[in-house]
Simulated scan of single mutants.
Amino acid sequence: MNICFIMYPWEEIDAEHDTSLALIKECVKRGHGVAMCTPANLTIRNSVTCAYCTVIGRMDKTPSSLKAFYKKAQLREEMLPLAGFDVIFFRANPPLDPIMLNFLDSVKDDVFIMNSLQGMREANNKLYTAAFGDAHSNIIPATHVSKSKKHLLKQIKESTADKMILKPLNGFGGSGVILIERSAMSNINSLLDFYINSSDGTSNYVILQDYIEGADQGDVRILLLNGEPVGAMKRVPGSDDHRSNVSAGGSIQKHSLSKEEKALCKQIGPKLVNDGLYFVGIDVIGGKLVEVNVMSPGGITYINKVYKPKVKIEEKVIDFVESKVQDKLQAFDRRMRLRKTVEEA
């Protein structure tokens, strides 16, 4: 297979912990051709959607460690047509660039894209979790989204909770997530002004969410593949930060899914698959769904580490990708055979 990873620049990769690098390494190890490009490097040449790609040279022997693989990789630059790939693996960080999706629309029928373009359009921000909550479901915390300061202040005043979480709609990696407490509300006006108002005069949506008891003990990151959990870890906040994201100083621990967490995965899995969201990271606190990451879900290297040597999630992910490509090829061959039968009739 030939696989193109649309992601962040190679030089920004964390050579010890990067999930994208783990997936790339597994592809190279299996002999697949691998190229990478950033969303900004998509282009159209002679009416063909292409990308300025960084191509990884094939290796006779793939180093066992991520760090050694990153150091040894031989790279070259080349413009390549996207329809020539078997797979496009989307791994760019939020926020989602809608123009980039327009480029990919032209090849979506030729290439298997992980995750689907329509699925990413629907689920690329934190609003997607609202799709899983209704009057008969209690799997998400009470959530309010608005760019109206007046409305958000009203929700805070009417809430009976002592604590709430405030965060930007398009944040990731724990950026901008703060805890607000009823006993210290003197700065709430200035905080909302800061989150809502941009320097260019535009306004931003803000999420206000009920605080879940036990959140100070950390959250659980669960990776789902084709709607099924394939790995999980508990993320524990550092001593001087309420956020549990590893990028914010949190630490990781082994975690076995609880009965409630298994039920949660079973409930949301079918919708994820139906939306073409095959590789997803969800964050769970106290059995409640807090966030869904469909663009660049991370955690593979950390989960592998705490469950070493039993777990290698990247192998399961690439197995799945290979199976989807094989299904696509078999469907194409069958269609050609049937077409030939009709033409020869």
Rank of each mutant, 00 (worst) to 15 (best):
N2W: 12
I3N: 08
P9F: 02
E16N: 14
H17P: 04
A22F: 00
E26G: 03
G31W: 05
M36R: 04
M36D: 08
A40G: 10
I44L: 07
I44A: 10
S47Q: 12
T49N: 06
C53H: 07
I56S: 12
M59F: 03
P63Q: 05
A68Y: 04
Y70K: 10
E77Q: 11
D86P: 11
L96S: 10
L104P: 13
D105F: 08
Q118Y: 09
N124P: 10
N124R: 05
D134F: 06
H136N: 05
P141V: 11
L152P: 08
I156P: 05
I165K: 01
K167D: 12
S186M: 08
N197I: 04
S203F: 00
G214F: 02
A215V: 06
D216K: 13
Q217Y: 02
N226P: 02
N226Y: 02
P229D: 07
M233V: 10
R235C: 15
H242I: 15
E261Q: 06
Q267I: 04
P270F: 00
G276R: 00
I285E: 01
V294Y: 02
V294W: 05
G298Q: 03
Y307D: 15
I313A: 09
I318V: 13
K324A: 12
A331N: 13
T341M: 14
V342D: 06
